[in-house]
């Protein structure tokens, strides 16, 4: 008897929420990025768990994880490059000090 899917999904939801909370309350851009990675991982977990419990013979869910990882890698590369650029300009990566979009 294997573990019910809801265990994994609850865990996924909690991890995701922690990610959201991190994005909301931290001011360091790098930490915010890490939190985004957390959220992506939570989603990955849900993908794999649901894929298994659907009983399909094809691992479609795992392939989606694969794609998510590829996108995450690209996003991190670009995001970190932007952070480096911002840091060079502003000498800070605190998002509350980077507000040139203020209306």
């Amino acid at each position: 008897m294997s573990l019910g899917v809801e265990y994994y999904l609850v865990l996924s939801a909690l991890l995701f929420t922690i990610g959201v909370l991190g994005v909301l309350i931290r001011r360091n851009a790098i930490i915010i990025f890490m939190c985004i990675e957390l959220m992506l991982n939570a989603a990955n977990l849900a993908f794999v768990a649901i894929n298994r419990s659907l009983g399909s013979s094809d691992p479609d869910g795992q392939l989606f994880v694969f794609f998510v990882m590829a996108v995450a890698a690209a996003e991190v590369a670009i995001g970190l490059a932007i952070i480096v650029s911002v840091f060079k300009h502003k000498k800070t990566i605190n998002v509350d000090e980077v507000n040139s979009l203020k209306g």
């Binding site: 909301l24 998002v95 509350d96 980077v98 209306g103």
Partner: peptide, 13 residues
């Protein structure tokens, strides 16, 4: 309305 545009990314989030 422009006051809503704080430029703070977290307010948007």
């Amino acid at each position: 309305l422009r006051r809503l545009q704080t430029g703070l990314v977290q307010v948007y989030i």
